[in-house]
Amino acid sequence: MPPPNWSSQLIHLGAALLLLSSFAMLSQRRILSLVNLFALQGAVLSVSTAIVAYTSGASHLYASAALSLLLKVFLLPWILHRLIVRLNVRWDTETQLNIPATMLVGILVVVFAFALAQPIAQLSSAVTRSTIGIALAVVLLSFLMMITRRKAISQVIGFLAMENGLFFGATSATYGMPMVVELGVALDVLVGTLILGVFFFQIREQFDSLDLQHLERLKED
């Protein structure tokens, strides 16, 4: 066993927690809990970024850790919470596939991701290269979540979680080159626009349905 290397172990732990939260999201039916899990995932991500920053001495990573803390733990969950309250979709979401089956597929996805990541990890020089597999797995699992959910809002969360995976992969594999950070921020902006898009879409859908109910009530009178 190599001498206990604190930071790399902590990053491993962070990676595992990230994966755990991905699976928790995959197995969660309630949208509200989904948002909370997303916030948790963001927190894990920002902590592990900070640890990478500390280990590698790349100070710009502190900035991105702070950024992800702000964005993914506070801002986005807050927006999503408001969205949920507004749209009144706090109850269970329908899933396309039952949860254990989804998780089983998820496990296969993890195995696949690791098989895929092994050659890539060989190229990376970072101490934490075995986390690339987990990053890839988180991305694919988020994809899976988006596929299996019916409600648009959980698809947005899936998309955001996917971005988490990418971000984690970037920081842990390459110590977050500035370009990657920029890319991450750019993606965040993209995500933001996407949220708004779905937001409007969702609202329109909701109003449509509300309208229909109104019409029905009018007819009864």
Partner: peptide
């Protein structure tokens, strides 16, 4: 209940996998 327990089971399996994958 089966869903809850299946989740537990699969998480445990995942733990095994993570052990194999991270080698720790």
């Amino acid at each position: 209940a089966p869903e809850f327990l299946a989740t537990a089971f699969l998480l445990a399996v995942l733990g095994l996998l993570v052990h194999q994958l991270l080698g720790s």
